[in-house]
Amino acid sequence: MDRSTIIDTLQQRGGFITTGEVKSRGEYEQLRRATENGTLMRIRNGVYVEISALANNMIDIERIVPHGVLCLYSAFAHYGLSTQVPSATCIAIEA
């Protein structure tokens, strides 16, 4: 899979991809190279994001924290219940 195809795949998936979604070693190497040259960013083990997808205020929580729920000031801002922009994203997780 060439680099433009990996970027197309990322854009179709909202800018995020996990290593579980990568089908071959060659595709993984494309992810690694794109991370090294600054096109992609590794935000945690196995989760990569296109830099432009981070420009949005809200990110895809489910991709980063499975079963996580947006809460507190982050939820207020997302649903338009506050005029303040939170300085961090608050996520509730299972105990």
Rank of each mutant, 00 (worst) to 15 (best):
V69M: 13
E50C: 05
A92E: 12
R32C: 00
Q12M: 07
C90E: 07
N56L: 06
Y28K: 09
S24Y: 11
S82V: 02
R42G: 05
M1V: 01
A53M: 09
E50W: 10
R33I: 09
I93Y: 06
S52A: 15
V49H: 05
R32G: 00
T89Q: 10
S74D: 11
Q84D: 13
S87D: 12
I51V: 12
P86T: 12
Y48A: 01
V65R: 14
T5H: 04
D2Q: 14
A92D: 07
T83L: 11
G80D: 11
T39H: 00
E94F: 07
V85M: 14
E36R: 04
M41D: 01
I64E: 02
V65I: 15
R63S: 12
G20Q: 09
I61G: 04
I91W: 10
R33S: 06
R13G: 13
A53V: 05
I43T: 03
A77E: 12
R33D: 05
N37C: 10
P66E: 07
P86L: 10
L10I: 03
L70T: 02
R3H: 10
E29M: 04
H67R: 14
R32Q: 07
I64T: 07
M1W: 00
G68Q: 03
T5L: 12
S4N: 14
R13K: 13
Q30F: 00
E27Q: 15
Y79W: 14
D60H: 11
